[in-house]
Amino acid sequence: MLLEVSDLRVSYGRVNALCGVSLQMDRHQCVGVLGANRAGKTTLARAISRLVPFQSGDIRWQGRSTARMRPDEVPGLGVAHVPEGRQIFKRMSVEENLLVGALTADSRPHRAQSLERIYALFPRLGERKAQMAGTLSGGEQQMVAIGRALMLRPQLLILDEPSLGLAPIVVQEVYRTIAAIREEGIAILLVEQNVALALDCIDRGYVLENGCVAVAGSAAELRDSAAVREAYLGL
């Protein structure tokens, strides 16, 4: 087991954000965390990265609990997180953004190859490597955010709403990239509110509602589930 989240409870003050969520994923898998806005998807992603504390339950990475880790220790495990809203370093060049992505002991020595790899995956970033990242289009900024995370040479890539706020044609491009990243054998935890879009790309999915897992199963099972069809696919 690569990642195991068990009975995770997170609350902000008196508001319950997660009500005992469990999730498992294996190597090379693409797992979706699906559901509407405010269902707790981002909270789950941020809990895995240790950006939010949890009240009970546990998160295990390759069998080892990460409960007592600081957020800046998590990337060292091989977990890269592309946060919601991209959060790139706007007043740094594209290349500098990428370089900051490879600061851990495992990724730093491979930094030159990683850069080449990212520029091959996103030729447009190669053309604009000296440009200030904040001046790029939304789609290009998303590529910087994904590229920066890949610089870590992660075993797990957490993608939080990678399509949010992008034009449909750019969304397709982002999803083609996600498919290419999967091909490389990197496990992906995909947080997505566009359930139809995500179902084409995931092996298994967890549908969150009000902080709890409402439905879980393989992509095919979710597609066949009456609840999912009605609530998220509009069928």
């Binding site: 959060q87 740094m92 870590l152």
Partner: peptide
Amino acid sequence: TDMGRAMRATSQNRTAAQLMGINP
């Protein structure tokens, strides 16, 4: 330098810097 870049990254976006393994 890496440390200098990490410092600028932290000043621009602390949370994102943490996600890069930088200890603020």
